[in-house]
Write a protein that binds this DNA or RNA. Structure first.
Length: 256
DNA sequence: AAACAAACCTGTGCGC
DNA sequence: TGCGCACAGGTTTGTT
């Protein structure tokens, strides 16, 4: 099936059969499961993927592509399984050996600064150099996982609104103050979004492992609000345009 | 170097 | 009610 495309399904099953979970990590938008003996799994949800934990006897949702049975566990209860569900099949599950990571999941090595994992690693000075060293639209730069990892279309717009910068603004055209403000808002918006369980939009695709929707969409200032009066300045209506090939929402008054 | 389009898919919401 | 079309959270690849 398309969800398992870098290896055979048989290799995925063989690679994960009987292993013990040692850790679960997030790196940018990638999930990495660490098992004993160097076994690993990478999961990416892309547009419509979900990772759910449910009882083995609960009906499996449509588009369940990968199922990992769990041993009985006193804390969570008995008879549970991890399911990867993904209608659009853009998402991916890869099982690999730690030693083969560079070959099978090379993108993990190319991920940029992760604002939540290592907030202090990006100093204002480094950040200014990063911005000045390219001549890119801020929106495109935030969406690019190589300089900064973990920001998608929703949070790039929310970050730029809070930083009061337009999506099409050039990265090498910011004052020191604007650059500092942008750096600060990246961490703030991401941390708040995580605290509220992320953002679930109209189609409610984004849910946690228990199937619960996020709550941060209630705090969105611009995303999905084309034509609404801006709740921050109350002086302009939110506009929608295409930047970096993606739908972008912004306030013409707040953002310059 | 950076911008853009297309490709990978299915589901949903809208206008008619 | 139903049909066709536009569009959707991401990433890679190839072309201007």
């Amino acid at each position: 099936m398309r969800t398992v495309r870098r290896t055979s399904s048989a290799a995925l099953v063989a690679g994960l059969d009987g292993v013990t979970v040692r850790g679960v990590e997030r790196r940018g938008k990638y999930l990495v499961l660490r098992f004993d003996e160097g076994a690993r799994a990478m999961i990416h949800l892309r547009m419509s993927g979900q990772v759910l934990i449910a009882g083995r006897t609960d009906p499996r949702p449509a588009h369940t592509h990968v199922v990992m049975g769990l041993s009985d566990d006193a804390e969570r209860g008995r008879g549970e399984e991890v399911r990867f569900v993904d209608p659009r099949t853009f998402g991916e599950v890869v099982a690999y050996r730690e030693a083969d990571a560079a070959v099978l999941v090379p993108e993990l090595d190319r991920l940029g600064w992760d604002p939540l994992l290592e907030p202090e690693a990006m100093t204002p000075r480094r950040w200014r150099a990063l911005l000045a060293g390219r001549r890119r639209q801020l929106k495109a730069l935030l969406l690019d996982q190589h300089p900064v990892a973990g920001i998608g279309n929703i949070y790039s717009d929310e970050i730029l609104h809070r930083a009061r910068l337009r999506p099409g603004r050039r990265s090498d055209d910011l004052s020191a103050q604007q650059a500092r403000r942008l750096l600060g808002t990246i961490g703030e918006v991401l941390a708040e979004a995580v605290a509220h369980g992320g953002s679930s939009l109209r189609d409610a695709q984004y849910v946690d492992v228990d199937g619960r929707q996020g709550g941060y969409q209630a705090f969105h200032r611009v995303v999905d609000k084309e034509g609404h009066w801006c709740g921050t300045c109350d002086r302009a209506r939110i506009r929608r345009s295409v930047a970096a090939g993606r739908s972008s929402y912004w306030c013409p008054w707040c953002q310059r």
